[in-house]
Design a protein around this nucleic acid. Structure first.
Lengths: 214, 214
DNA sequence: CGGCGCATCATCCGAAAGATGGATGTCCGG
DNA sequence: CCGGACATCCATCTTTCGGATGATGCGCCG
């Protein structure tokens, strides 16, 4: 008989942790070895407990969104024979999916998934296989089919400042650029998003999940 | 001995329902009488089961946000000796809080509240007393102290179109106004929000919960 | 090597957005 | 009942933004 799958929960919501705990309880091949409420705690716990699978929320407390959590995932993954990371999230915005997958997450699950899907995803992740929620997988496939707008890092940075309400001049100073360059980036952004104004770009990017609403 | 408090759970996330169930389990004076995954199911279950307290999420599935859930709350509350409604949510944006309270919710809890708070809120709600999460309560108080920006209906309408990425001209046509009038509304909006551009206004209003991100 | 995408900059021009200043009308409290 | 606060409407002036066009260096990949 194979040893049980050692699992670490990382989520800042007691309710969610409690729910996941209950969902794992009935499975004899699962062993919950620890819980953490923040990204930092999660990384520390992962180092200490050496779980096989980490179930990790993407929204870890206020101000700790997407890219930050992604870095935590990477930090865990770099450990020798590091754990497999299963990312949990409420919303399936494209930006989060891509960021997490690119950062090395093994799988990606929506929080409204039934317990069967969760169990399957954990077992699948334990073996190293990629496990994606069906709706997420189809979304990723859809993006391949429709070669959707992919903004460069610099363009995303500019767009972020635009979404924050800064003018071109303010952005240029903050990024140590010429105002012209900022405008050029914007022109490219407009072309990629199929819009023709900064506010429309922000609206489109928000809907597409490229930027985070505040 | 008093009869137990009959509770109905309404949340579209199996994980969250499971977590709440676990949190209610240990309490002898609580009785979980039903669960529902959507607002419609919730209303039906409330009519049928006559619970004392309804624990209800504000984000019920895709496309069913704030105001919609609020209407469900109202529908439940209008029944004779209707149940007390405790609203659960992940984010404490002002708009949601106000909308839910105004619609007659008895209490308001953030999902990251510890189980003790949850228990206290349920008991408090069962007696009809208002129960607000401390962070929420202080936020409401804060809004009274700082007479926050209150936009007129017309201004909100304009701002909504701006957030959707429309130009002043487009807005003017859609609202049967002169373009100048649209600009005037915007000037007033800027003054109230303390900003000086349309994108900044959208950012500020989003953060303040005045408009909904997409 | 020769594209191709990314990032950087410039100039010119018309259009959109913002700043300023009025004009109504309503509603509420002194 | 009257003045002030506020919402709604409008016009003129200045600044900013967006569109067009063009250019340079860099790194990557077939």
């Amino acid at each position: 008989m194979t040893p049980p799958i050692r699992i670490l929960l990382v989520d800042d919501h007691p309710v969610v942790r409690s729910g996941l705990r209950a969902m794992l309880a009935g499975q004899p091949d699962f062993e919950l070895v620890g819980e953490a409420a923040t990204g930092e705690e999660g990384v520390a716990a992962a180092r200490r407990l050496r779980p096989d699978v980490v179930l990790m929320d993407l929204q870890l407390g206020p101000g700790m969104h997407g890219s930050e959590a992604t870095r935590h995932i990477v930090a865990m993954g770099t450990a020798v024979s590091g754990p497999r990371v299963l990312v949990l999230t409420t919303f399936d915005t494209d930006a989060d999916i891509v960021a997490a997958i690119e950062a090395g997450a093994t799988g990606y699950l929506l929080k409204d998934a039934p317990s069967d899907d969760l169990h399957a995803a954990i077992r699948s992740a334990a073996t190293g296989a990629s496990a994606l929620a069906p709706s997420v997988a189809s979304r990723l496939l859809g993006r391949v089919r429709t070669p959707r707008a992919t903004l460069s890092p610099r363009e995303l940075e500019v767009l972020g400042h635009v979404a924050a309400g800064l003018s071109n001049r303010q952005i240029s100073k903050r990024m140590f650029l010429s105002e012209t360059t900022v405008k050029t980036h914007l022109v490219h952004i407009y072309a990629k998003l199929g819009v023709d104004s900064r506010t429309a770009a922000v609206a489109a990017a928000t809907k597409a999940g490229l930027i985070r609403p505040s």
